Simulated scan of single mutants.
Amino acid sequence: MDNLLNFKDMFKKSVLKMDAFEGVSLVDLLLSLLVAFLIGMFIYYVYQKCYRGVVFSHNYNMTFVLMTIITALIIMTISTNIVLSLGMVGALSIVRFRTAVKDPMDIMYMFWAVSAGIASGAKIYSVAIIGSLVVGATIWWLTRRREATAPYLLIVHYEAAAEEEVKRRVRKMNGTLKSKSVRADITELTVELRIRDDNTAFVGEFSALEGVKDVALVSYNGDYAQ
């Protein structure tokens, strides 16, 4: 019964408060925005350095900085007044984001920016800073680990006379056959390879084989060629 009365008193007090920022001092406001900005810039830097897509979008990367700051502002606003928090939830519920996000990693960066903004707006700076450092270090490590064995598509056009030698070399490299097409007397072979430290000397060896017309090596991210 006492808890119920306390909730009613708290609700009435919150409703009667007209000043939305009564509970936020200027120092807290500036500090939260500063932390949100710095973390947003850190996300911006990590995204720029670890991006492995086809076309890098500077404008899209800028949204992470703004998203972190705006989220911090929202959290500071709704934390001062129950009525404002209910109104903010209602307003945000009608927002629809229709921009297609093709890369799952981009969604992860969005959640990172929102989470950091929430922690900064709630003045839990240790969580925001340490959590962002851990996430950034994890992304950097996973990205560099992936680069150590980068996937490539080897595309070879050759005549029938070179088929056995080409197959022998592909098997030796532990390549995975993706496609093979024959047009007249020319065969096109597409093989996925894992290459360490950008060692592409074998391309010249394939090109030197008798009967090989041309060789192409294309960077490959698992979904599409770049």
Rank of each mutant, 00 (worst) to 15 (best):
I139A: 06
G40W: 02
I129L: 13
S93Y: 04
Y224S: 14
F11V: 12
C50R: 08
R196E: 15
V95D: 00
E165I: 08
D28V: 11
A150G: 03
I43H: 07
M18V: 13
Y47R: 13
I94Q: 05
D198M: 07
T80F: 03
Y158S: 01
S32P: 08
V114G: 00
E164Y: 14
S115Q: 04
R96S: 12
A122E: 02
L209D: 02
I94N: 03
A150E: 07
S126A: 10
L86V: 14
G175D: 07
S207Y: 14
A148K: 12
F7E: 11
Y158A: 01
V135F: 11
G117F: 01
Y44D: 05
K213S: 02
F42D: 00
T77C: 06
E159G: 09
K172Q: 15
A161T: 15
L177S: 07
N3E: 13
A113R: 02
M110I: 08
Y51Q: 09
D198C: 08
D106E: 13
S32V: 12
R52C: 01
T138C: 11
G23A: 15
V135A: 10
V170K: 02
I43E: 05
A208F: 07
I74N: 05
G211S: 03
S32M: 09
D198P: 00
P151A: 05
S57Q: 10
S85F: 05
W141K: 08
L92T: 09
V134A: 10
L16M: 13
R96V: 12
G222M: 07
A150M: 08
V127L: 12
V95I: 15
E22D: 14
Y109I: 15
Q226I: 15
L217K: 01
A119P: 00
M110G: 06
A72W: 04
H58A: 15
A162K: 09
M10H: 12
V83K: 02
T187A: 03
N3L: 05
L16R: 12
S25D: 10
F21H: 06
V182G: 01
L142Q: 06
G23S: 11
T99Q: 06
F202K: 04
I43Q: 02
V191H: 00
E163R: 11
Q226E: 07
F7D: 08
I94D: 05
E164H: 14
P151T: 12
E22M: 06
V83G: 02
M62E: 05
L153F: 10
V54P: 02
P104Q: 07
R96H: 13
V218P: 01
A116G: 02
M1V: 13
A72P: 01
R52T: 12
L73M: 13
A161D: 14
K178C: 08
E164L: 14
N81I: 07
M173V: 01
S126N: 06
I39H: 08
Q226T: 14
I118T: 09
M10I: 09
A161W: 00
A148Q: 12
V114R: 04
K49S: 09
V135G: 00
I139M: 13
L84C: 07
